[in-house]
Simulated scan of single mutants.
Amino acid sequence: MSAEVTIIGSGRMARGLAQMALRAGRAVQILGRDGSQTRDLVESLGAGASGGIIGAPVEGGLVVLAVPYREVANVVRELGDGVDGRVVVDIANPVDVSTFDRLLTPAGTSSAEEVAVMVRGRAEVVKAFNTVFASTLESGSVGGQHLDVFIAGDSETAKEKVSALVAKSGMRPIDAGPLRRSRELEAFMLLVFGLQVSPAHENFNWDTSLRIFP
């Protein structure tokens, strides 16, 4: 059975996203750089998961870039025409983790918009999952409260596909508007990251998640 969701990366976010997709009943393909790590991840996920090395044929109609911002451009180049006709989901937060005090993207753009420029219309780009963290994705909730997933993109059809995956996994999709809203989603996480690493906020940690009430 071909995978419906292809996740690029084999780290903690890749694991959380894969478990979320499997919870939604979607078969998952994991493509990573480290063959051993990728294999271990696939085996731990069990039924519905398959894997390979980046460069292998992409199966999923949804391609999620579960890599740090500094790796996004290289991964998109390596995928090449493997993303053609698909929905590419950028989850990156371009935060300078040496200071947690600035974004690495130039003013007036975002990581997701940079991806859109790179794929040059060959794929639809959506921003999603940058406001949730790996451990919280695994369950889809924190303290009994479901997670909100903010989704930005210029294609309504592409956003609907990502929203359907989110909803099926038990979380709430929120349409944040066009792809340029990625700038605000990424900038907000600069604030959140700063709070998480600050000793003044000991109750904030990497399990922090965002939800709008009601």
Rank of each mutant, 00 (worst) to 15 (best):
E156V: 14
E59L: 00
V58E: 01
S209D: 01
S209C: 10
A176R: 02
P178M: 02
L17E: 14
I54H: 00
V58A: 06
E4D: 14
S50N: 11
P68F: 09
P214G: 12
I174Y: 10
R180L: 01
L165H: 11
R33A: 11
I91Q: 03
E186G: 13
L179Y: 10
V58C: 04
E160M: 11
A66T: 07
V162M: 06
G177A: 09
F204W: 15
S209A: 15
S198L: 14
V89F: 04
L41T: 01
F193S: 11
L104V: 02
S182V: 04
V192F: 10
T136E: 00
S141L: 14
L179Q: 09
E186H: 11
A27D: 13
L104R: 05
N205I: 07
S182I: 07
A27S: 15
E114F: 03
A164W: 04
R181S: 14
L22E: 02
D101A: 15
G153V: 12
I30A: 03
L22V: 02
G170K: 01
V132D: 11
M171R: 09
D34A: 13
R12W: 05
V83L: 14
A18S: 15
T136I: 02
V97K: 12
G11H: 10
L62I: 06
S111C: 02
G177F: 07
F213V: 10
G16E: 11
R15C: 12
V125T: 07
L165C: 09
K159V: 14
E202L: 05
R120V: 00
A24M: 00
L190W: 04
A92T: 12
N130P: 06
V117Q: 15
A3W: 04
A187P: 01
M13G: 06
A112F: 08
A27K: 15
M20G: 02
T131R: 08
I174C: 10
L195D: 05
S10K: 01
S155N: 13
F213Y: 09
G16D: 12
V149C: 08
N203L: 14
T105L: 09
R12G: 03
G177I: 09
M171S: 00
S135D: 15
D84G: 05
L41P: 04
E184Y: 12
E43R: 15
G25K: 03
V126W: 09
V88C: 03
S135G: 03
G121I: 05
I53E: 05
V88N: 01
V42K: 10
V166G: 08
